[in-house]
């Protein structure tokens, strides 16, 4: 299926870019007229995925993170990708409370993504990097009926 619109962002893996990434995606997704709650869910999930790239993917180096978003009639697909160290065991990494990030990390990143999005897929290869694909259905609102854009 062909997307209505798409975008791509690339930025350095600095923690100061976490806010930039989630706000940019939120601004782009706003075209679908999501509810405040749907938008908050997407911002939170993107923030988690981007933070993982910075804290884990590029823990010892500075690298490039790319985020793409595609919007469809009532769905958004977001890909967050790093070319960092990769995840040796994806199933383990996705378990709630599992973390290699130290004491101040809660180990809830993937649990939050799974709870706030409709689908979360992770593909990773050691030393090649990790891609997280986040999908969410945006329920069309009554106000949009009869107003094709």
């Amino acid at each position: 299926m062909k997307s209505i619109n798409e975008m791509k962002l690339e930025f350095a893996s600095r923690s100061s870019n976490e806010g930039f990434a989630r706000s940019s995606i939120a601004a782009f997704v706003s075209q679908l007229d999501p509810t405040i709650s749907e938008l908050a869910d997407i911002k939170t999930a993107v923030s988690e995925a981007v933070t993982n790239c910075i804290v884990h993917g590029y823990s010892k180096t500075l690298g490039v993170i790319s985020v793409t978003a595609q919007i469809f009639e009532n769905r958004v697909i977001i890909r967050v990708r790093d070319r960092g160290c990769g995840i040796p065991n994806v199933d383990q990494a996705m378990e709630p409370l599992f973390t290699t990030g130290g004491e101040e990390r809660s180990g809830l990143g993937f649990a939050v993504m799974q709870s706030f999005m409709d689908s979360v897929k992770v593909s990773s290869r050691p030393d090649k990097g990790t891609t997280v694909i986040l999908e969410k259905n945006i329920i069309p609102r009554m106000s949009k009926v009869g107003c094709p854009s």
Binding site: R22, A40, K43, T44, S47, E48, T51, E103, E104, R105, S106, L108, G109, A111, V112
Partner: peptide, 13 residues
């Protein structure tokens, strides 16, 4: 205005 799971680590710590 916004909090992700980093806020959980902040509270727990």
């Amino acid at each position: 205005r916004f909090m992700d799971s980093s806020g959980i680590g902040l509270i727990m710590g």
